[in-house]
Design a protein around this nucleic acid. Structure first.
Lengths: 257, 257
DNA sequence: CATCCAAATTAACATCAATCAATAGACCAT
DNA sequence: ATGGTCTATTGATTGATGTTAATTTGGATG
């Protein structure tokens, strides 16, 4: 069985050393990369479930996730809804810069480390280097594409497939920022977290996880998913990574000319 | 009863005369507005259900919706999923400019009119006026915020509330581009369209519509919603327009300085 | 080791929604 | 008007999911 080996995957993903701008960094030249990294005023550690920025709050800094995972959440009544998930390299609250306030909260899942970027610094750098504005725009467009896929997932898939889809997306996004593909995927979600991402009850999330186990597709235990066959899991979840634009050079080269 | 008067609302919304840049136009000065309007190479009429741009297609023009409504759709298997809705003034396929190809299709709902904008023109104008890049970025961020609200709607609401929410959002977005608030809202959706937006079956959409009628909240017939009490409908759908950032000046003034 | 607590699991029952099938209504082309 | 087609409506049945409650498990702590 592939269940025995838990220990070797407990290391959180991080982009330290080459850590900023995530997906986009391969499209930045040395100078641009230095500029973006220079924006970070300081780093901040977050413990589990810590709120980095709260919905409706006016903000004057943005943050880049460096290590760990974060949720975008909306509270309504006494319920919490998770509307997005972020991996290292993602700008987690960039919309606060342009829109002035947040339409949702940003919360850590497990411990996380972020780079704090004052809006003023972004502002200055955008004046100096207009190409940076495009980079930020691309990042926002990618977020939107991921949101659309979540919408389709919620419209199309039943509970077990939604859960499978979330893990497939996470795995792929982590690969895109350097995580090697392994049979185990560490992601410190509780079943309540999964339920809130899928729009189902926690009890049903539990049943859905049981279903994935039953089908031999994946085992999810204590914050880690184990699978011996990612391809089968992706097929089951009808996961197609096209929406992540992994192959796309974002026209940066042409644009810069 | 408020049901008798169908005829007076059949006029489609349009922004002709002051037609471009939609939500953002109030934040543009005369010169900028002229620049954006100057981007439109020509107009194009679309009949019902016409595909303006197809998923996975490489594109070299973008389009601004001038009159009518459009869907963002994803086909999967032989099913169609609607992941977004657009009103006049919206850039419907702007992401194609930056990302090179589309992750979904753009389809008219009823007849529509769009302004076609060559990517090359956007490119040139962005070089000349960096402030335009921000305007396009803001538009993308608004789209993302709307996507997130759809995600929450799908996670939180049952079928009748989802349908109510969609109409509330549509009404509010149309108000933001100049439509007066009336008891009747013309929107040429079939019950299949509503089903595909809500992630439910057409039969169930029909029952959900029946439920809204039963509750005295709204009547939906032949492409028009009638309600005598928008506030009640909004409350039922738990609709809160904050995510549309109607009050937000987008920091354009400060940024331009 | 004993205790505690959050998370996970299971069962029973109620509700929501999908599917299949049949019918009725509206609109269109001839 | 006639027939055809798309849309809307309704009923019956099955499956998916929510709710509540009780129980178990695993990990943390003293």
């Amino acid at each position: 069985m592939f269940l025995e080996s838990t220990a070797q995957v407990e290391r959180p993903y991080d982009l330290t050393g080459d850590f900023l701008a995530g997906r986009l960094r391969k499209h930045l030249d040395q100078d641009e990369l230095a500029c973006v990294e220079g924006l970070v005023a300081h780093e901040r550690m977050l413990s589990d479930q810590e709120v980095l920025a709260r919905r409706a709050e006016r903000v004057d800094t943005a943050s880049i996730l460096i290590e760990g995972l974060m949720f975008r959440t909306i509270e309504s009544g006494n319920q919490r809804f998770i509307v997005g998930l972020h991996v290292p390299g993602d700008f987690v609250d960039l919309h606060g810069f342009a829109l002035g306030r947040l339409d949702h909260s940003i919360v850590s899942v497990g411990t996380a480390r972020v780079g704090v970027v004052p809006h003023l610094g972004i502002e200055r750098l955008m004046q100096k280097r207009p190409s940076l504005a495009r980079i930020l725009w691309f990042a926002s467009l990618l977020d939107a594409a991921i949101h659309r896929q979540w919408i389709q997932m919620l419209e199309q898939l039943d509970a077990p497939r939604r859960i499978a889809h979330i893990y497939c997306e996470l795995q792929t996004r982590l690969e895109l920022v350097g995580k090697p593909s392994t049979r185990a995927l560490r992601a410190p979600f509780t079943q309540y977290d999964l339920a809130d991402m899928c729009g189902i009850s926690a009890v049903h999330a539990n049943r859905a996880i049981g279903r994935l186990r039953e089908l031999g597709l994946a085992q999810i235990r204590r914050g880690t998913l184990y699978t011996s066959d990612w391809a089968a899991l992706r097929q089951y979840a009808r996961f197609d990574s096209a929406y992540l634009y992994a192959d796309t050079p974002f026209k940066l080269a042409e644009m810069r000319s």
